[in-house]
Design a protein around this nucleic acid. Structure first.
Lengths: 248, 248
DNA sequence: TAGTGGTCTAGACCACTTC
DNA sequence: AAGTGGTCTAGACCACTAG
């Protein structure tokens, strides 16, 4: 593959220098984007990958370590390296920060109230980086923990990415479904939190008086390519739960 | 130092195996705890450290990289490795997650309303892992951004760690003061967020009606040794600000 | 026992900063 | 030009998993 050739200026240009191991990382991510490597799959061994790419094992190792830090792959000593899956355990750990004040975190159940396709509002378009009017899917649901309704949630998706998603039953684990049905991986997300007073609709859905203080979570989920995949507004009751954040 | 000697079972025991580079990391952290390495100070070069510890440069590199990931040191190519400081820029980035909806993050001003020493309440003791009745310092202050009061804050400190702290003027940058005056480094923190309705006291301090929804941030700050250093309750108005969280 | 990732070493060279 | 951290390589050995 000649990636090691120092005379090949296109591969290792002196200006805009990009380390080899990052180029290798990008190549591997691209394989995931294209679906050549799919969630759960075991990657070839470091030695095999190194030989294939034309790079030392140490460089492949740095690339895979970087991907492990991004949670794109999981490395298990003695077993191999695997493309990360969006199973409930991972989502609970990485994406679901609302945990009980006492007791173990748990994956919430969902009751879908509506799931429709409509033109993107201005807010939809701005969040998802679409043009206003582009079709989006809008899902309203109430999520419960321990049998009690805790979260009133609005999910907005670019319809073009998820054809037919709204026609059948809506699964509880959305990100897992995105991956298995559409090959779209949610790689990371940004959340913006505010405290708000619940309006009558949300309060009724959660079974509390209107005006109750709730935690509003505004989440934008991004794919492997860094583009928006989902916009989500969650209004959470925090009497018995809290949002957990580690500052490290 | 003979750390490389494979025959020295005390250094590299087979059961409870701990990698060399982590042992080196622990040794370096210990130097920071003891004040031999202080914030802002330049560390010896990797080669010098490797020679001193009796380990390869690559192992020292892994130890320092791990410490850089923990934000305990800052590495600058061509210049050296430095013990991290608690300057406002770092605090803004690592510990202050409340940012304006529009515009740049800024370091808040503070007005201290009271600063006293008293016996730890049950809640104090539980949070800070003290015995009830142990003396603690309690600081009430209001923090403002852009001239507007936004946060009503209660800070609780173990009095034993910070003798005399409450006698003079209370600085705005607490963590910087902890480091320079007492050699105590806040290494990381855990935050628990809830939405609450403001009581009359906090509402008055922030100039809003009682019952206004506010974001309650319950922070426990930990030192280099992992022990609690500070407990802080912040009630934040989120009309023009939000709490930012990256899920990666 | 074979194969995987994890650690450790040694050495060469590169990019960046400072003098 | 000298010194620092950053990259890349090559090879040895260790810890863990599975057949």
């Amino acid at each position: 593959m000649a990636m090691r050739s120092d005379s090949d200026a296109a591969v290792r240009p002196k200006l805009g220098f990009r380390p080899l191991y990052q180029q290798v990382r990008d190549m591997f991510v691209q394989r995931m984007v294209e679906g050549r490597w799919t969630p759960g799959q075991a990657l070839p061994s470091e030695i095999d990958l190194a030989a294939e790419v034309g790079v030392s094992q140490g460089t492949v190792r740095k690339a895979l370590d970087a991907m492990a830090a991004e949670r794109l792959v999981v490395r298990r000593q003695g077993r191999g390296t695997f493309v990360a899956e969006h199973d409930e355990a991972r989502i609970l750990f990485q994406f679901f920060k609302l945990v009980p004040d006492a007791g173990e975190p748990a994956f919430p159940e969902s009751r879908v109230d509506s799931a429709t396709q409509e033109p993107a509002s201005m807010a939809d378009a701005q969040s998802l980086q679409l043009k206003a009017g582009t079709p989006v899917l809008r899902i309203h649901r109430v999520r419960s923990l321990g049998g009690k309704p805790v979260v009133a949630e609005t999910v907005v998706l670019p319809a073009g990415l998820f054809p037919g998603f709204v026609d059948g039953p809506i699964p509880n684990n959305l990100y897992g479904s995105f991956a298995t049905r559409y090959g779209i991986t949610v790689a990371r997300a940004q959340e913006r939190l505010k405290a708000v007073a619940l309006d009558e609709t949300d309060a009724a859905a959660l079974g509390v008086p209107a005006g109750t203080a709730a935690l509003l979570i505004d989440r934008l989920a991004l794919g492997l390519d860094g583009l928006p995949v989902e916009w989500r507004l969650s209004r959470c009751l925090t009497a018995d739960f809290h949002y957990h954040s580690d500052l490290t």
